[in-house]
Design a protein around this nucleic acid. Structure first.
Length: 526
RNA sequence: GCGUCGAUGGUCUAGCGGUAUGACUUGGGCCUUCCAAGCCCACAGCCCGGGUUCGAAUCCCGGUCGACGCACCA
């Protein structure tokens, strides 16, 4: 008998805690809300997912990765408007307890009087150098709330690095910090979290000409477009002069409670969606499709993914269009795991004017013998790695009835599993243990991350590996001593095959790459 | 941030005024020729601070953390 979906999700969190994937931070001091540690296995999983992101964006897309500081001086966020858009003075109605942003309202609807309730700044403020006074002083600095600004401020350097040509993309994987008012739901809302972001700089007139669009044209997606009534913006052109108005759009967001939009979900190919103007151009469509490819490749089944377009009033201050990849969690419902935004020239223009530096690019048209100066537009896929890890864990977790027991198994894709293989002597006998250690040494000297385990019955050891998602168990038995063959047990099916020791390396390399995962079938709460 | 409820070994749990129950896990041993078997041994716990009391895991207050609802989520 399977437990209900939410209980399953509860169980996967319990497993993740017990087996060293994720731990609430600072537990010995009572814990601090919004902070989580990745334990030994969680860190391996996270690295593997980050590397999958790199494989897609660095190796396949040819983008370079950079690394910029977590701490930025005030200037950066003054320019980007995060300072004004992330900080709110909040008032509270004494009678009904409702909160309002201070500037929005002078009297509560219920007639109660409003009192100052505090200043909520989503950015963590800190100080560079000797501390004088707090806000407004010289060394005032902030922990970045997104990694993107580090890329934008390096734009002149990056443009030179790319020999003055567009388009090009840059990625960054790193920590971002937001002092959420009430972080909740484990990895879903953190105060310190990992973002993997790509910033693609493109000539504005070329946004509908992605050179590789044909490769993704036929990919089918579930889309939830903002309905046109809430959203006359779909091609709001984003010049620097329109930037201030998008900031004020956020001020009204609080009045319209949740009800997302009346738009219908549609299933459509990327090519068609772009042609019909549902997705406003090829660049956005291409990275939506790439994101879909990425998420399914790490084990999130397509039927639990959709892309939802932001309404105008929920868009971030810098965005002119935005689609979220949403994951259908058994516990939390639809949650955003990736945002793919068209930031227009908002950021580069903002930094150009605040820094007095040139952020434009000269585009030559050799046919017409003309040259023009443009500020590139930015397309930004922004991946919330922690939420993706939660999604991957929830999708991978299965409870199966085996005899009287429940087998708990993480059917992680092989290339992201923390441990590739376990080497196990069938019995606790010297000759088997010695042989098993030999095999183990072969693996580790060939850069395959394996573990050796001789403790407990063989069944128990298999189950241990099942719980942490190890795809293969290699067992050494008496036959190994006779003919140098071992058994390889598949995690997902528990089937075993027998292969020669000399073939183990090739077997693992082949299997770990090929990967048609057995976890496509997926029981939602039906 | 507000409201309701809660917090006991690594995990789950019993106890609800006399310093703690059981299971699982883990470690060691015996046994064992493939799926959490069995037997023996061992490790390990009352969220933090204050108060009431002869005595607090238990009652009271404050805090922290968590779940849910509201608000927030740029």
């Amino acid at each position: 008998m399977m437990t209900a979906g939410a209980d399953i999700a509860e169980n996967v969190l319990e497993l993740a805690r017990r087996r060293g994937f994720i731990w609430h931070s600072y537990e010995i001091y009572g814990g601090v809300a919004g902070f989580y540690d990745y334990g030994p296995l969680g860190t391996l999983l996270k690295r593997n997912i980050e590397n999958a992101f790199r494989n897609l964006y660095v190796i396949d897309e040819g983008f370079y990765e950079i690394e910029t500081p977590n701490i930025s001086p005030k200037d950066v966020f003054a320019a980007s408007h995060h300072l004004e858009c992330f900080a709110d003075e909040v008032v509270r109605c004494e009678r009904c307890g409702s909160f309002f942003k201070r500037d929005d309202i002078s009297k509560c609807e219920c007639g109660g009087t409003l009192v100052f309730a505090g200043s909520f700044n989503l950015m963590f403020r800190t100080h560079i150098g000797v501390q004088t006074t707090a806000a407004g002083s010289r060394g005032e600095a902030y922990l970045r709330p997104e990694t993107a600004q580090g890329i934008f401020v390096d734009f002149p350097r990056l443009l030179k690095f790319n020999r003055d040509k567009l388009p090009f993309g840059i990625i960054q994987i790193g920590k971002a910090f937001r002092n959420e008012i009430s972080p909740r739901q484990s990895l879903i809302r953190l105060r310190e979290f990992t973002l993997a972001e790509a910033e693609i700089f493109v000539e504005p007139s070329q946004k509908n000409c992605h050179p590789r669009f044909d490769e993704v044209r036929d990919r089918m997606l579930r889309l939830l477009p903002a309905s046109s009534s809430d959203n006359e913006v779909s091609e709001k052109s984003h010049s620097a002069s329109t930037s201030s108005e998008s900031a004020s759009a956020t001020n009204t967001a609080q009045s319209s409670t949740a009800e997302h939009s009346s738009a219908e979900e549609i299933s459509i190919s990327v090519g068609e969606a772009v042609e019909k103007g549902i997705i406003s151009h090829q660049y956005l469509g291409y990275y939506i499709a790439k994101t879909h490819e990425f998420l399914t490749s790490i084990g999130i089944p397509a039927h639990r993914l959709r892309f939802r377009q932001h309404r105008k009033d929920e868009m971030a201050h810098y965005a002119s269009d935005c689609w979220d990849a949403e994951f259908l969690s058994m516990k939390y419902g639809w949650i955003e795991i990736v945002g793919i935004a068209d930031r227009g020239d908002y950021d580069l223009s903002a930094h150009a004017s605040h820094s007095n530096q040139n952020m434009s690019v000269y585009i030559s048209d050799t046919a017409k013998k003309t040259r023009k100066k443009v500020i590139p537009h930015v397309i930004e896929p922004s991946y919330g790695i922690d939420r993706i890890i939660y999604a991957v864990l929830e999708c991978a977790y299965h409870e199966e009835n085996v005899g009287k027991d429940i087998r708990r198994v993480l059917k992680l894709k092989k290339h992201i599993a923390p441990i590739t293989a376990a080497v196990l002597p069938l019995l606790n006998r010297e000759e088997l243990k010695n042989k098993a250690k030999e095999v183990f040494n072969i693996l580790r000297s060939n850069n395959i991350f394996a573990v050796y385990d001789e403790s407990g019955s063989i069944g128990r050891r298999y189950r241990r590996q099942d719980e942490i998602g190890t795809p293969f168990c290699i067992t050494i038995d008496h036959e190994t001593l006779e003919n140098s063959t071992v058994t390889v047990r598949y995690r997902d099916t528990m089937d075993q095959i027998r292969i020669h020791i000399d073939e183990i390396l090739n077997f693992l390399r082949r299997e770990a790459v090929g990967d048609e995962c057995a976890c496509e079938r997926d029981e939602m709460n039906d």
